[in-house]
Nucleic acid binder design. Sequence first.
DNA 1: CTGAAAGCGCTTACAG
DNA 2: CTGAAAGCGCTTACAG
Lengths: 339, 339
Amino acid sequence: MGKRATILDVAKKAGVSKSTVSLVLQNSSLVKQQTRDQVTAAMETLGYVYNRSAAGLRGAASGLIGLIINDLRNPFFTEFAASAQMCFARQGYSTVIANTDEKPDIQAQVIDSMIEHGVSAFVISPTYGGEDRPFDRIERAGIPTMQVLRQVDERTDLFPFASHDYTAGGRLAGEHLIAQGCRKIAFVGGIEDRPITLERMSGYHEAMTAGGLAPQAFYGRPSRAFGRDIALHLAKEHRDIEAAICFSDLVALGMLSGFAEAGIRAGRDFRIVGFDDIEESSIAYPRLSSVRCDSALFGQNAAEAMLAWITAGKRPPDQKRYDVDLVTRQSSLWEERDV
Amino acid sequence: MGKRATILDVAKKAGVSKSTVSLVLQNSSLVKQQTRDQVTAAMETLGYVYNRSAAGLRGAASGLIGLIINDLRNPFFTEFAASAQMCFARQGYSTVIANTDEKPDIQAQVIDSMIEHGVSAFVISPTYGGEDRPFDRIERAGIPTMQVLRQVDERTDLFPFASHDYTAGGRLAGEHLIAQGCRKIAFVGGIEDRPITLERMSGYHEAMTAGGLAPQAFYGRPSRAFGRDIALHLAKEHRDIEAAICFSDLVALGMLSGFAEAGIRAGRDFRIVGFDDIEESSIAYPRLSSVRCDSALFGQNAAEAMLAWITAGKRPPDQKRYDVDLVTRQSSLWEERDV
DNA sequence: CTGAAAGCGCTTACAG
DNA sequence: CTGAAAGCGCTTACAG
């Protein structure tokens, strides 16, 4: 295989100095086109590949973005991560991704490791819990960092936060179900007292209060399995409840499955609205109504915000909430023509 | 924020030479415990972080693994990627992940970029198609590389291939449905003529031939949407077909949804077996029978094989097929007690 | 067990 | 527009 070619080899081949080669690499306008072409040709024939370690040592940006996700298996986060990664890739940035699986110690380890690798920026959907403040290491390293989807560090002036306007989403869902004539509407899923749960519920509370109705919550893991279980539970013990706003589509899809099992017709006997609008929701049966938080778009927005920060120095605002909207489908407004 | 501490600072603080600090970093046994402790303490108080760029320049392994996935949004691959990444992380390796979205040009770009970053190894679930052989750049760079789940380069002596024993899985599924008394059994989903489709079908063909039955295939994208559409199609045009083996669980889950919509009771009126056994299958309604290809375990196995290669020089075998088994659930063997 | 020295492949002022 | 020189923070023989 031989040794990898260096800029010195390229310089010799092209008949210029190595500084010139370096300048070509930076796309500097100091080099005239003809020289540039010679150098490029030499790189081509030598099979030269840029050595980023060497560049990094001398102070150049690594072109590596650290993307840390609390639960990469959840399609909501997968979609976000994949979209952000592809947006970074289009701009020539590579993305180091790590799944922390909601474990603070893994998150701490992964952050340290990425700092060692010299990531130019962090985008983190963090894990809750853990002893010390997880971002302190990052702060010391002075690496631009955005927290997304979950805010765990209050210093948003240091670590700007971006998420969806969940409160508005919960309100839209609540108002919609009330407009459908539902009175007993439950909120299903989400870990009690977590910020996201509180946000998603707060809009629901507002809508219920405005309608003079009493809210009611069934907390639990935001998983299909929980949704299924709660549907079976409601079918047995709470036949009075007419509708549910779910913490996430995963929960809602699980409820769809559970109601099917219990012989209850979702959309008719029981109305359901999910949260997130993942791809599956639009083809489930019945089609699932959901508060759309466009993950793909959000991933792209977050990536672009970060790129603007590290390339143009434009720090994102401390807090940014992206709009959501309600997509109504069969599960909350069955009509005969849908059959 | 000040400048980041270097080994020189640590050495001064600990009252040793910088070589000693470096040795401590390598966990060398040449340094006695007391010295090691002093150095470690100095690193602690200085907030020293290891600079991998510098180390990489001097020839040390980067500790970076390149993981390239053709479709990161598909839970089958997400599960694999997340599991492999976490396995690498446990051994102190960071993982650069890229989703190629089945696009050969993105794959080529991503490979180049990762080579620049000096990844120590590649694990690739490649994209089909594209002009030139995508692995040639890797070969020149001499980076250990495994192709997983899809074989696109015939040189498995250079790029060992690991996957599941799909043929056996198809056979198990076929034999099972025949044993259930089905005669007209279709194969649904998968792009025609792709190696994986051929593998998954071949076992089905074997089983059908052995049973004196005629195979029949409906090709298509391995998505929920396709499964839903084909179920609606079968319900209208092919009421004679009694059962289906699906290319993937995604297709099978889509069929479940489509049959529910068409008023056909999956598991009773029509039997279905999926492929992959993703998490959702065990809680879908009806519970989906599936050929289990344990993605999480496979991801771990692949990661461990790669780690053995780069740390102990043990190259994986040219071809490795991991066993699969059939998990039978309601969708293929409904019985009254299941109700 | 520890220290002094060279060098990995780049980038960055500084001259010319 | 291009060249010579220094140096980024490590690792690696080589002495001691």
